[in-house]
Simulated scan of single mutants.
Amino acid sequence: MKLLVAILVSALALSSSLAYDPSPLQDVCVAINDTKSAVFVNGKFCKDPNDIIADDFLFQGLNVPRDTNNKLGSTVTAVTVEQIPGLNTLGISLARIDFAPYGLNPPHTHPRGTEILVVVEGELYVGFVTSNQLGNKLITKVLKPGDVFVFPIGLIHFQLNVGETKAVAFAGLSSQNPGVITIANAVFGSKPPINPNVLTKAFQVDANVIKYLQSQFWYDNNS
């Protein structure tokens, strides 16, 4: 009997280790009981395969420089499932990042995708911060044209143009919809605002500092 129980427990453990939920491809998916309501499962419905056309798999113009005349001096042009419907279920996406001299793609995370970046023009100071478990270690490098750098999924990372000329980079991401959370925008620009008492304690600064930061306009450089 004990042997049978041990075998059953082992089988259940193995089954649990091999089965898992698919990665979410949208921020939230609230459960409802009304089956008549239209729902998006992981973001998109699927088109009838017999009706697909070439344009379902096409995005044009990623070779065109973007306007970087903004507060950050950078513009991210995303090519996700929103721009190419044919990416649905394929688990990849792309982005072009344009930088003005000394422009910044500010600290942010992609909750659903690892990013691999290649610099094609200019020099970028890039980095990411490890989790609390690894002591929030900062990993940085200055990249030149042809250099490639990886930002692991979910970790805070950034890119700064350290040159006097413009810079351009392309990034591949391991999700059709990797998402982006810009740290400053999310913390200080949320709607409605986070209770200042929360942020005062979290950042251990005077309440007036938090109020000032929450009163600022936090620019979103993702187009």
Rank of each mutant, 00 (worst) to 15 (best):
V5P: 00
I7C: 13
L8R: 09
A13R: 04
A13I: 14
L14F: 15
S16A: 12
L18G: 07
D21Q: 09
D21M: 05
S23V: 05
Q26Y: 01
Q26A: 13
Q26P: 01
C29F: 09
V30N: 10
V30H: 07
A31F: 10
I32R: 11
I32H: 11
N33W: 11
D34P: 01
D34K: 05
V41Y: 13
F45W: 14
N50G: 08
I52R: 13
I53H: 10
D56V: 08
L58S: 09
G61E: 12
L62A: 14
L62W: 12
N63S: 15
R66V: 03
R66L: 15
N69K: 15
N70H: 14
L72G: 07
G73T: 06
T75R: 08
T80E: 06
T80A: 11
V81L: 04
I84V: 15
P85K: 09
G86D: 05
G86Y: 03
G86C: 03
L87I: 07
T89K: 14
S93R: 02
S93Q: 06
R96A: 15
R96K: 12
I97H: 01
P101Y: 04
P101L: 06
P101E: 06
Y102E: 05
N105A: 10
P107R: 02
T109W: 00
T109A: 09
T109S: 12
E115M: 04
I116H: 03
V119R: 00
V120S: 12
E121V: 06
Y125I: 02
V126Q: 03
G135V: 06
G135C: 08
N136F: 10
V142F: 02
L143Q: 05
P145R: 03
D147R: 01
F151I: 09
P152R: 00
I153F: 05
L155E: 12
I156K: 04
H157Q: 07
F158A: 10
L160D: 02
V162S: 05
K166C: 08
V168P: 01
A169F: 01
A169R: 00
A171S: 15
L173Q: 12
N177V: 05
N177I: 04
V180G: 09
T182I: 13
A184V: 06
A184L: 04
A184W: 01
N185I: 09
A186H: 05
V187N: 01
F188L: 08
G189W: 00
K191V: 14
P192V: 05
N195C: 08
N195Q: 10
N195P: 00
P196V: 10
D206L: 03
D206Y: 04
A207Y: 02
V209Q: 05
I210E: 03
K211C: 04
K211H: 13
Y212P: 00
L213W: 03
Q214M: 10
S215E: 11
F217G: 02
Y219H: 12
Y219S: 10
Y219R: 01
